[in-house]
Design a protein around this nucleic acid. Structure first.
Length: 566
RNA sequence: GGCCCCAUCGUCUAGUGGUUUAGGACACCGCCCUUUCACGGCGGCGACCCGGGUUCGAAUCCCGGUGGGGUCACCA
């Protein structure tokens, strides 16, 4: 065996890896896999490494790599080994590089062994020829397996044609015995001999296929535990067969249950395009709004049910038409204003459960990253797929913001979020941000809702809600307006103009008049915001400011005086 | 269709043969708190896919059925 990929690490050391292919942002399913790999390694004082599977030249992009690294870092899923990124990554054991496209020599060395031992062989069919064979088999209602036609060619000729540079792939000769996959979640899964066909391990372009690269790399990098989605289960016998042929050890496998949409469809990036497209149809949007797409592009996208827009274009379009597509990628949840450790918390519960109770008998459901690291284990991973429930995630996030965060911590988190996603509001708020945060916190479930809660403070030129005006100001001969008239001077006398003092002053006035607080609060709300809903009265007025509050009372009075009496 | 996986309230799940009138969370519905909204408190609704075994006893073990899902590329 060549030293190139000999085992550099003692087998007892726990090493997990996350190996995304850089074809887009990190998907929540991938995020959960990464999270589990990370937690498992951490909990076993092991190493979590990141490897980029970019052997598909056509679909990989550097932007996608950067996006995935950023998403992981934001989540708090930190890799000790792998691509360097803001202090993460590195290669202390010298097992890199961590981009498969840079490891072709390593794969070829392993491949040479298989070729030599006769476990792999070149095949010369074109993709078109294979498609035709496949189609013929399907049409005849039969399962297609590669027919080993290339093995009909005498070996010497095969080799010489390969050496002469004739286009070819290399196939692995599948074993003639059953392959058993020992999975720590599912148990032993047996695949009968003959189920595997001679799959391709090196493509015509010289790059290894996924199956081959994964097996070689996991061995070379000393990966001890492979946690991945259950959609990979049928790949595993191929990998095990390859390991056996190469004399590698087989790592521990744990196949994670799948995550679905509430309607049982697979969660996919396409869902976003689908939702936006449906909204466009529903709202009869027949041309792309200014500054989003050109007409031809928009039309083509609308007509092709499976078309996907680049993320940025899609989001710009969605924003322009006032629609929020469902969150699918980690970046989507970040943009909506979920907290990273809450997302991790929720994700961890999809397919895993600590199985512990709180003292009051409820299940332990809200936990920190540290708790996850401490408790996570393969033995409590579930077997059945789960549906992604945004309502519950939202409730988790709301719980964190409303019941666990302080006003100060929320203000910090909000500021960070605004810096990235809503600079206009950040600037409009200015140094009132902490006050606004305090007012908005208990009414905010995800960060993007917060600005709406305090929107009244940002603009003076709001309109009044008719129903509110009728009910609160004009009813009973302008009772509400009369209250407002008297409240003006009361507010004027409040100094300093702070929430508690404001509330106290209004309360005093009510008591003196023998009125319930509601009789004063609601007219003031309408005057301050145009409607009947706002944060606490004191907070609302303080946020608006003394002069502006008085102005709003005046404006309201002059607008409705004489409309309905009073 | 072949192969493979799975199956507890609408959803996420606890439950590993008796401690279970199956526990919790989200959602939903009431009531309470209350200056609106929200928060919070209390209560309610609501599940072991079906059929056979095994056993004194089965949500838990076995078999079959049904249902759901995954996968069948020179993508990963």
């Amino acid at each position: 065996m060549s030293d190139t990929y000999s085992q550099p690490t003692p087998a007892e050391h726990t090493i997990t890896r996350f190996a995304p292919s850089p074809t887009g942002h990190l998907h929540v399913g991938g995020a959960r896999t990464a999270l589990f790999c990370w937690a498992f390694a951490r909990g076993h004082e092991g190493t979590f490494l990141l490897r980029v599977e970019d052997t598909d030249q056509k679909r990989s992009s550097e932007a996608a790599v950067a996006g995935i690294l950023e998403d992981l870092k934001w989540l708090g899923v930190e890799w000790q080994e792998g691509p360097a990124y803001e202090g993460l990554g590195g290669d202390p054991r010298g097992v890199g590089p961590f981009f498969q496209a840079e490891r072709v020599d390593i794969y070829n060395a392993a491949l040479a062994e298989l070729l030599e031992s006769g476990r792999a062989y070149p095949a010369f069919e074109t993709a078109e020829e294979l498609d035709a064979k496949r189609k013929a088999a399907t049409d005849a209602n039969q399962t297609y397996r590669y027919d080993r036609a290339a093995l009909e060619i005498p070996e010497a000729e095969r080799i010489s044609r390969m050496m002469a540079g004739e286009p070819h792939v290399v196939r692995f000769k599948a074993p003639d015995h059953d392959v058993v996959v020992a999975d720590s979640v599912l148990g032993e899964v047996r695949f009968a001999a003959g189920e595997l066909d001679d799959f391709v391990i090196r493509k015509a372009d010289g790059f290894p296929t996924y199956h081959f690269a994964v097996v070689v790399d996991d061995e070379a990098m000393g990966v001890s535990h492979i946690l991945r989605g259950q959609e990979h289960l049928q790949n595993t016998p191929r990998h095990v067969a390859l390991q056996q042929a190469l004399g590698y050890r087989t790592p521990v496998y744990a196949h994670l249950p799948l995550i679905f949409n509430p309607d049982n469809s697979k969660m996919s990036k396409r869902d976003k395009d689908k939702a936006v497209r449906a909204y466009c149809k529903e709202q009869k949007v027949d041309a792309a709004p200014e500054g989003t797409l050109d007409d031809a592009g928009f039309k083509a996208w609308m007509e092709d049910k499976r078309a996907q827009l680049p993320t940025d274009d899609l989001m710009r379009l969605a924003t322009a038409i006032g629609f929020a597509p469902p969150e699918i990628d980690v970046e989507d949840f970040r943009r909506s204003g979920y907290l990273p450790h809450v997302l991790c918390n929720y994700l961890a519960l999809l397919g895993w459960n600590p199985g512990e109770k709180n003292e009051d008998g409820t299940d332990v459901e809200h936990f920190s990253m540290g708790y996850l690291v401490e408790k996570f284990g393969l033995d409590r991973i579930g077997k059945s797929a789960s549906k992604f429930d945004r309502e519950k995630l939202m409730a988790f996030n709301a719980n964190e913001i409303q019941n666990r965060m302080s006003d100060e911590r929320f203000a910090d988190a909000w500021r960070t979020w605004l810096e990235r996603y809503d600079r206009a509001t950040l600037e409009a708020l200015g140094d009132k941000l902490p006050m606004a945060a305090a007012a908005a916190r208990q009414r905010t479930r995800v960060m993007r809702e917060a600005a709406g809660v305090v929107a009244f403070a940002l603009r003076d030129d709001f309109g009044y809600d008719d129903k509110a005006v009728q009910k609160v100001l004009l009813k009973n001969d302008g009772e509400g307006l009369a209250v407002l008239r008297e409240l003006g001077p009361v507010l004027e006398g409040v100094e300093p103009f702070e929430a508690d003092a404001i509330e106290a002053a209004i309360k005093n006035w009510c008591e003196a008049k023998g009125l319930g607080m509601g009789k004063a609060a609601q007219p003031l709300r309408v005057a301050m915001t145009g409607g009947t809903v706002s944060p606490g009265l004191g907070q609302t007025l303080e946020l608006i400011g003394k002069q502006a509050s008085l102005d709003r009372v005046g404006r309201c009075l002059s607008q409705f005086a004489g409309v309905g009496g009073g």
